[in-house]
Structure formats: C-alpha cells, structure tokens
C-alpha cells in the first residue's frame, strides 16, 4: 500500500496537469465562440473545436480516471483494509467518504452547483432565449436524463450500502464468535503459542476481506459509471466544464485537508512538548 500511496500522489499531479489543459481548452473555446467565426464549410469554429480538441481531451481525462480505478482494484485485492482507511487521504476527505471514495450521488450536486453558477452568470442571455452552451444551458432532455440517472444512481448507491451492511455484520458471525472464544480460552489456559497461531485467524477473516473487496469494487464501479454517464449526457464543452469543477473540488479539498492535518499534528506535538 506504500506503493498505492505513491501511485495516488502521482495521479493527482497528473490530474492537476489535466485540469490546466481543460481550463485552457475551455478558454480557447469561449474565445472562438465570442468571435462567432464561421468556416468555409459552414460549420462554426466552436463545433470544430469541440470535435478536434475537446473530445480527444475528454477521452484522455476519462482514461486517466479509468487508470486510477484499475490500479485501485489491483491493490485492493492484496490489501483491501488500507482502501477503507486510506493513509493517502486527509481526515477531511475521509469524513466525506463513502466506501473508500467519493459518494456517487455527489456527482449530481456538483453538476447542479456548477450549472447554477453558470446559469446565474449568464441569465440575461438565457432569458432572451440565446444559447450559452455551458452547464447553465442544460436542455430539457439533458435535465431529464440527468434526473433519471440521479434516481438510478441513488438506488444503486443504497443497494451497495446494504451490501456493505451485510458484510460488516459478518464480523459477529458464528465463526468469529467461536474463534474469539477459543482463543480467549487458550490464553486463560496459558497456551500462548497456540493462541498466537495466526493461520486460523487469517482463514476466518479471508472471506470477510473478500466480501469487502467485492463491495469496494461495486462502489468504484458505480463511481466510474456515474462519471461516464454524466459525460455522455453533456456536450463536449459542458463535459469540460464539469470535469474542471470535479478536478478543482477534488484537488482543493485534498490540499485543504492535508494542511489541516498538518496543523493539527503541529498543535498536538506542541501540546505534548509543553507537558513534558
């Protein structure tokens, strides 16, 4: 897991690079759009930019997310417990986590929040029936699809939460209760060597860890699926805005959390030294 920690650190550096690319692409698009140029073949320049620049960029960013979840899945198989208690995350991020990652239904809040900001910023144009092309300009059918996807995502999220509950309850199944009793008795009788035998413990815990791996993979699967499906509903430029918002939120919250943790550690260390 030390290596997944490293992987994560690299991944967010790459995410930041993608963020910069996404921001530049959005700027370029808006500039061209502002000039309202048309090309010889009648297509607008912004259509051209969407196809030539934005789509491939979106594709790359999505592949980067896929890469993350593939790596996570691989490491989870060898050490699932660290995925539920990730050392690479700050306690701020930890507090908002659902099954080792972001909550899938958060996607829709992110979308509505960003959409709302863009709507308010260009309300005049939208009121006049002009198209702004950004997330404030979600069409009826897009909103319809987002709404359906949201309902479906929440259903699946609840379903996976239930699966996790079942897994967590097995911590007190008869194999565990029996083994803890047996080991306690051995310790009372002074059979320390036998009591320390980890083989039977590992054997008993193995199916539980496997269950957790399965739940984690379903959760990660839903995260990736929700992200992709939202992007399928959006136009390329809307997708770019959405991914910008997603990366900004992820990176900044991560940094703030790290800073807070560092500050807290400083405080507690200072507290200790004062006591001594």
């Amino acid at each position: 897991t030390q290596s997944f920690h490293k992987f994560f650190e690299c991944w967010i550096v790459e995410q930041d690079q993608h963020l910069q690319e996404l921001i530049s692409a959005a700027r370029e698009y808006e500039e061209r759009r502002g000039r309202g140029c048309r090309q010889d073949d009648g297509t607008t320049v912004e259509e051209d930019v969407q196809d030539r620049t934005l789509r491939p960029l979106l594709e790359r960013v999505i592949q980067h997310y896929e890469h993350y979840y593939r790596a996570k899945s691989r490491w989870a198989k060898s050490d699932v417990l660290s995925m539920f208690n990730p050392s690479w995350r700050s306690s701020l991020e930890d507090a908002f986590m659902w099954i080792g990652g972001w909550r899938p239904s958060m996607t829709f809040h992110l979308l509505y929040s960003k959409s709302g900001l863009q709507l308010e910023a260009r309300l005049t144009e939208l009121l006049q029936g002009l198209s702004t092309g950004d997330l404030g300009d979600l069409s009826p059918s897009q909103l319809d699809q987002v709404n359906e996807l949201q309902k479906q995502t929440i259903r699946e999220e609840k379903d996976i939460t239930e699966k996790l509950a079942k897994q967590q309850e097995t911590v007190a199944d008869s194999s565990m209760v029996e083994l803890t009793h047996v080991v306690t008795e051995m310790m009372r009788e002074g059979q320390v060597d036998q009591a320390m035998d980890t083989e039977r413990v590992d054997e008993t815990l193995a199916p539980k860890e496997e269950g957790l791996v399965e739940v984690l993979q379903r959760a990660d699967g839903l995260r990736l699926k929700t992200l992709k499906e939202v992007l399928n509903i959006l136009s390329p430029i809307q997708g770019v805005y959405f991914l910008i918002a997603a990366a900004e939120l992820h990176l900044r919250v991560h940094e703030w959390g790290k800073k807070r943790d560092a500050r807290r550690n400083e405080h507690s260390e200072n507290g200790h030294s004062q006591q001594h």
Binding site: Y112, G116, L126, G129, S139, P140, L143
Partner: peptide
C-alpha cells in the same frame, strides 16, 4: 412554456 418551466427549475437549483 417548456423553456420557462426549465429555466425556473434551473434557477431554483442555482439558488440552492
């Protein structure tokens, strides 16, 4: 009318 209903909905969402 559809534009009106959707814009009002989006405005409500925009205003949290």
């Amino acid at each position: 009318c559809s534009d009106a209903s959707i814009l009002l909905t989006k405005l409500a969402l925009a205003r949290h």
